[in-house]
Structure formats: C-alpha cells, structure tokens
Design a protein around this nucleic acid. Structure first.
Length: 202
DNA sequence: CGTTGGATCTTCT
DNA sequence: GAAGATCCAACGC
C-alpha cells in the first residue's frame, strides 16, 4: 500500500478532504507491531470561523498549536479527561483546520486491537467511535501528538485503501457539538453507508 | 431495549 | 468552577 503524500492534506478544502479520507487506511506501528483499519467515519473542523473547532477565533494554545502547521500532522488530544481523540491537520500554514477520525474498519493486527480493548471477539464496538479507535490502535496524546502521517517511518501513517463512491457517503451534523449553536447544524460528519463500524443511516 | 452517572484532564470564565 | 469533538457499566423496563 502507498502512503498518501503531504499534498493530499493541503491541496483540497477540509470538508472535501473529510470525504476523501473515507476508504483510506490508518496505520499504527508500535514496537514493530502494525495495526490498521479503513477509515469509515470522519468529521471536519474549520477554525477560526467554526464554533465547534478547538481553534475557533484562532485560539492557539499548547494543545492546539499543531493546527497552525501545514497539513499532514497529527492532532491528538485528551477528551473528558480519559480518552484520546485522533485528528489529521489539514490546509495551509496558519489555517487551523483538522479532521477527526471517528471510526475505522479493522484490517490488520486485529488480535492486538482486541488485546488493547480487553475484548475477546471481533465486533463493531472494537473501533466504532473516536475514543475506541485510539484505544484499539494504541494512540496516546503523549506519544502521538504532532507527527507527520505522510512519512513512512512515522508511528502513524495514512495509506491508500479502497474506493468509496460519492453515493456511498452519508453527510450529517457533527456529534456532541450542540454548544456550537448554528455551526452545530453544518453537515460535516461523513460516513460510509451500510458499514457496521459506523452508526446506521437515518 | 433506554436512561443514568462516573471517570477525571484541558481550557476558558 | 464548569463543561467538553466519550465510553461503559449498572440499572429499569
């Protein structure tokens, strides 16, 4: 499989990229052990205008500083004090956009993912949900913040995967962002239709 | 099946 | 001091 080049993350609009990422393969390599899965659910966050984004109004803190780099870097942060959520920074320098990876369909290293999730049998709950994805792949804020996903020796890479046609993509409002008022209604959540690792179509 | 509450870090008021 | 880009176990039907 081929690693996507850095230009993939900088040459299109973030909302388009969130759709383009569906079908691509997220790969984590820790201590030589590879775990991988097809991306089947994403959400776009477009600071500084987007009220739901951590970079709303250009907020630049220790946590969000990687947003301001050129696209293709990882943004991992802690959510509700106990989960790690994984994003890919997109766009140009000083353009604080990112795409949250919400669900994957496991393809490689499933035994390792089951072990990390303390599960015995493969089912959708293994990697359906942003915090589940990071747990299954061993992604941690301390270990995986601000890494290039376009470099072959990176702990996290994104590679080519399967073709997803526009008809297979479902757009809907983002999850858990009611506080963002009118921006909460933007249809910036994208899912692969009929995939069991995302919630069913409505 | 649906609902509830606990875990507990970062950031902003 | 409060709330958040969440998950899961423990309930009650």
């Amino acid at each position: 499989m081929a690693i996507l080049s850095r230009t993939f993350y900088t040459s299109s609009d973030t909302v388009q990229l969130a759709q383009d990422l569906l079908g691509k393969t997220l790969v984590s390599t820790i201590d030589g052990v590879r775990t991988a899965g097809i991306i089947v659910e994403t959400e776009a966050y477009r600071g500084p205008e987007d009220k739901a984004a951590h970079t709303y109004k250009g907020r630049n803190t220790e946590r969000t500083k990687v947003f301001f780099e050129l696209g293709g870097m990882t943004y991992v942060y802690r959510c509700y004090g106990m989960h790690h959520l994984f994003n890919v920074v997109t766009g140009q320098e000083k353009e604080p956009h990112a795409i949250l990876i919400r669900a994957i369909e496991p393809t490689e290293g499933i035994d390792k993912m089951l072990e990390r999730r303390k599960m015995s049998k493969l089912k959708a709950a293994l990697t359906a949900g942003p915090a589940r994805v990071t747990k299954a792949m061993g992604i941690l804020t301390e270990l995986h913040y601000a890494l290039p996903v376009y470099e072959a020796d990176s702990l996290l890479t994104i590679e080519t995967g399967i073709e997803i046609s526009p008809e297979q993509i479902i757009a809907s409002p983002r999850v858990g962002v009611a506080y963002a008022q009118e921006d909460a209604l933007l249809p910036w959540r994208f899912r692969v239709k009929d995939n069991i690792y995302t919630s069913p179509a409505k």
